[in-house]
Design a protein around this nucleic acid. Structure first.
Length: 337
DNA sequence: TTGTGTTTTATTGCCTCC
DNA sequence: GGAGGCAATAAAACACAA
């Protein structure tokens, strides 16, 4: 039992008890309603204004800590022949007594100034409040504990707010990403549809195919990538057909002789660059018909360099890479249209 | 009035510092 | 080794609903 031994026998000097305080203590009303003067007056008043609280008696002789006898209640033992009043008092003193409102307010104010208690300050506070220095120390200790708990709660709330805020931001970004992906897919579909209408597919003149076949298409990209930057290539992928993944694989392998190490490639349906940290999985899959598939439709890829993409300020001189300038531009920065 | 939950006062044991 | 701080805890005091 941690706090069980309330009464331990220790040195006593009953004559040291201030009887006036004792008698006043007996007159206290419950819940510290004894005095309600303004707080400021507390600091102007003499220590006597605090006496008579429901607090513990004031012993002039502060217990030594030899034993380490920290027990406040253990400070005295009663003379069996003590007076009735004394008996009554000590009987009551066996129970904890709360500090008066004034005492607490005074201590609170002192705590606000400094939550650490130097010995001098402790002694002065104890004297002013008519408390044992030990009581003051205990009060500060408990007050610090309460403060710490509240601080932890505040910190938790603050962190929680930050988390919620970030989560909201993240969710919004996810939505934006989805929106952009479907926009890219939609635009890609339009491009393919246009190519289809122009009959270029049957003639093997698809701009998309040209884009994928043309070795020089890679040239600006490769040229623009300095040593060590190859992994920063990004691919705006706009696959429209689940089955196209297989075609992508074929395309990738077919083009492997064209693309150097800095170019992405398809492996097991996963687009990847030489840097394994940049792996792209096709997320969008559309419902193109088998007929369209038979036409060997190829998803266009827009190769860009990450550093070149400024989402807030669309470039005006970007390479089209097989798209018409406007379409390509719109595909990358759809919100600017 | 009573049961129950919360707050306050106080103790104990351990740790750190000088 | 003593003094002081802190965490854990006990227990009284208090609040409040039923």
């Amino acid at each position: 039992m941690a706090g069980g031994r309330v009464f331990s026998n220790g040195p006593a000097n009953i004559s040291n008890i201030n009887m006036n305080i004792l008698l006043q203590n007996q007159q206290q009303t419950p819940r510290g309603n004894s005095s309600q003067q303004p707080l400021d007056s507390l600091f102007l008043s003499s220590s006597a204004s605090f006496f008579g609280s429901r607090s513990m008696v004031s012993f002039e002789d502060v217990q030594g800590r030899k034993r380490r006898n920290r027990s406040f209640f253990g400070g005295f033992d009663l003379d069996e022949n003590g007076e009735d009043e004394m008996d009554e008092y000590f009987h009551q003193s066996e129970k904890k007594r709360r500090l008066s409102v004034d005492q607490v307010q005074f201590l609170e104010k002192s705590f606000e100034e400094d939550n650490k208690l130097e010995p001098e300050r402790k002694t002065k506070l104890a004297k002013d409040l008519g408390l044992q220095p030990r009581q003051v120390a205990i009060w500060f200790q408990n007050r610090r504990a309460r403060w710490k708990t509240k601080q932890l709660e505040k910190d938790y709330d603050s962190l929680n707010d930050g988390y919620e805020s970030l989560k909201t931001e993240y969710d919004n970004l996810l939505k934006e990403k989805d929106r952009l992906q479907s926009e890219v897919a939609s635009l890609t579909e339009k491009v393919l549809e246009r190519e289809k209408q122009e009959g270029k597919f049957k003639q093997g003149e698809s701009e998309t195919k040209e884009f994928l076949k043309e070795p020089t298409i890679n040239k600006p990209l490769v040229d623009s990538v300095s040593e060590g930057e190859g992994s920063k290539l990004s691919i705006v992928e706009a696959s429209n057909n689940n089955n196209n993944n297989n075609k992508l694989e074929d395309i990738s392998s077919a083009r492997s002789d064209i693309l150097d190490c800095e170019s992405p490639r398809y492996t097991d349906g996963v687009l990847e660059t030489c840097d394994s940290s940049y792996v792209f999985e096709p997320e969008y899959q559309s419902d193109l018909s088998q007929d369209e598939e038979d036409h060997n439709l190829l998803p266009p890829y827009i190769f860009t360099k990450l550093e070149d993409v400024n989402y807030s300020d669309p470039p005006h001189n970007s390479t089209s890479y097989g798209f018409q300038e406007e379409d390509h531009h719109q595909a990358l920065w759809p919100w600017s249209y």
